[in-house]
Amino acid sequence: MSIPNEALQKLVHEIESQALVAQQQIGLTKSQVASKQREQRLIKLTLGEVSSLPDDTVIYEGVGKITTLPDADEQRFASLPVDSLREKLDVQGKDIEGEVEKLNKRLLYLETTQKNSREHIEQMLRGR
């Protein structure tokens, strides 16, 4: 049984567009993974610095900007125990690790989708 040319062209076009979308998503996902990995490195560096501090060290954390005058932005800080900061950084590190794992799974799925799309196109053109 032979597929008409119009139907074959439509099918190839759909598969090509699916492969193109997958390629775009691959680029986006790779940049997201790189960003999350930078965050992980920053957290590890911060934890390394904080771990060398004595437990009674006063640490300040930025809590945001407050504008008291129209042209003056002031950064506000709150004191934080060293243990609290360590716990907070540990939690953030674990959260980011989970996000990177999910992104890597998505990347694998997208790469497989793109590869399969290309193989289907080649297979249809060879079978023609």
Rank of each mutant, 00 (worst) to 15 (best):
M124T: 05
V100W: 02
K88N: 12
K88A: 09
L69S: 14
I15F: 13
I66F: 06
E6K: 07
Y60I: 15
E6W: 05
G48E: 07
V100T: 13
G93N: 02
G48H: 08
P54R: 10
V91N: 12
K36H: 15
L125Y: 00
L45G: 08
T29F: 03
D73K: 10
N116G: 08
L108E: 05
A72G: 07
N104V: 03
E119L: 13
H13Q: 15
R86V: 13
V21L: 15
H13W: 14
N5H: 03
V58I: 15
Q32Y: 04
L80V: 05
L107E: 11
K94R: 14
E6L: 01
L8K: 01
E99M: 09
T67M: 14
L69K: 03
G62D: 10
P70S: 11
R118M: 04
V33N: 00
E16A: 07
E97D: 06
Q114R: 04
S84V: 10
E49W: 12
S2T: 02
L108R: 15
K10H: 10
L28R: 14
R41W: 08
I121T: 07
P70I: 10
D56I: 12
T112F: 11
D95Q: 07
T112D: 01
Q123W: 00
V58A: 01
R118K: 08
P70G: 05
R41K: 02
P70H: 01
T57E: 01
S117E: 01
A19P: 00
K30S: 15
V82D: 08
R126E: 05
A7Q: 09
G127L: 01
K44H: 13
E14G: 05
E101V: 10
I15P: 08
R128S: 00
K102R: 14
E6Q: 04
I96Q: 14
I15M: 12
